[in-house]
Each structure stands twice: as C-alpha cells, then as structure tokens.
Amino acid sequence: MEKMKEQEKNPRVAYGLALLALARADRNVVALDADLCGSTQSVQIEKNLPGQYFEMGIGEANMVSAAAGLALCGKTPFVHTFAVFATGRPFDQIRQGVCLPNLNVKIVGSSAGLSDFGDGATHQSFEDMALMSVLPNMTVLAPVDAVEVAKAVQAAARIEGPVYIRLNRNDLPVLTDDSTPFEIGKPLVLAEGSDAAICVNGVTAGMGLAARETLSGQGIGVRVVNFSTIKPLDGEAVRAALSGVRALVTAEEHSVIGGLGAAVAECLSKTPLPTARIGIADRYGQSAHNYEELLEHYGLTAGAIAEAVKELL
C-alpha cells in the first residue's frame, strides 16, 4: 500500500472507471463531452462503449440542452467538461432546461477549483458550487477522494433528477475506503476532537487532517468533518456532527461566497459558533507551475487552517 496505484489516487481516473462500470450495467447511461474527454475521462465510454458516447464539440450550451433531450427520452446523461465551463457557460440551459423540469441529467465538473493550475484564471473554478447550489432540484456533490468519487457516481445515478459532481484534476490522498459510509446530505467525521471542528471537502480534507496533527501537538483537540454534499444538507446531521466544539473553521477550494462555508453557516444559523471561513477571497485565480504553490498563494494550507483555529479559541 506504500505506493498507491495511479487509479486509486486520482479522482478523474476513478471517475472514468466508475462511469464505465455504471454504463456497462445500464445501457441507458450515456456520456456527452465537449472535446475534453481525455481529461474528464469520459473517454472510457467513448473507447469501451462507443454507442453510449456523444461527442458534442466545443459547444457547452448545446451539449446541456441535448442532454435534457436525451433525459426526456429515458436516458441518464452524464455531461462533461471543466467545472468552470460546465456550470458558468451553460448556466441558463441548466436552469431552464434541466433543473426547472427536474430532469435526470448529471453535470460533471472536472478540473475544479485551482486544480488546473497551469491554465490560469479562465480555467479555474471558484463559483461552481455556488452556481449549482442556488438552483432548486439540484444536488451538489464534492467527493473527497478517489474512493468517494466512485460512490458519488453510483449515488448520482440513483437520484432521479439533476446532480452536479465536482472533481479535482490532481491526485488526492485516499482518506476513505469501501466500507466508509457515503450518504448524500450527511457529513462524515474523518477524525475526532472536541475543542474545534474543521469542515472540509475535496483537497482541503488532507489539509484539515494535517492541521489537526499540528494542533494536537499543542494540546488542542480538533475534529475534522468532511462534506461531500453541499446540497441538500441534512441540518440535523450537520449539527450533530459539529456538536460540542467551541469554534469552527471551514476550508474549501472555492469562493468563500456560496460554497461549503456558507452551507454550514446556514445549518448553524440558529445555534452559531465562532467561525472562520477559509477559501478563495472573492477574487480570480492565475497560472502557476504547480498546484501546491498556487494553493499556498491563495491561503489554502494546513498552516493557515491551524492558525485560524488557534485565533478562534
């Protein structure tokens, strides 16, 4: 287990394999892509089940509305491109043609957050969870690792309605296994602690666990709680998962507006805790030669999370 195999660590690779398994079992599952199938890994369908793959060219609006048409004829379309193009460019098509009639269309936003580090601001997405969360009928998922990606694909297929799945481009530490529960709407406690809680999802989960290590050396007990669902959140389950702590830090690779921090704060609005929200501070991204450098530049580090916890306590 020292050296994890590529497919076990990379969310995109795990996604492609999970979608392939799903599509093999159900021939009504179809994949659409806007000329990025190699990156999004919907190429697994194109290569292995070509009858269930539709190349839609570089035209996201048409792709989403065509997916609505496929869903209206009994298909379960999974629509792929980078998160920024999957949610921003065809927002109106998603709103009017998918969410309003509550159609069974799955939008898969790949290379979310800063994870497409080299391509810069145009390709990085800090708004996708906010945009998708505001739409009635939409379920918004942000799986924490490659294992959860596969579970999220299965869960999305079981929902009769629109789902947005946010995926990271890069390898992520594997924090869960096949036996870890995955239930839409319920947060998952990754590590226990009673002084403060750190709410994480995606790439910030590893950071939250590292911050917990640091703080435990200083006598501070920190609970790390993962949120693979942004919407709909089970308020009771969230309050239970965060009960007993004195402070809260949320950390997300997304704008601080309209993402994880906002969703958690909503659940705690009647029983608020001193809270710090770490994320992208209402600004755009930029290019960098590696992911870590960029995360650090935007303040997404284990150190920043640990500091925020200490300031609150």
């Binding site: 989403v64 509305s65 048409g69 496929l70 004829c73 109106d92 098509q93 043609g97 309003l100």
Partner: peptide, 19 residues
C-alpha cells in the same frame, strides 16, 4: 420540453433524435 429561454429547443430536439 420546457422552453422559453430562446434558442434551446433545437438542442433538446437533437438529444431526442439521438435517443
């Protein structure tokens, strides 16, 4: 199909025709 935001119906038709 739901329409009203102009320009989307032909794409929906494409999806139905593909299905």
């Amino acid at each position: 199909a739901n329409t009203g935001s102009l320009g989307q119906g032909l794409s929906v038709g494409v999806g139905m025709a593909l299905a």
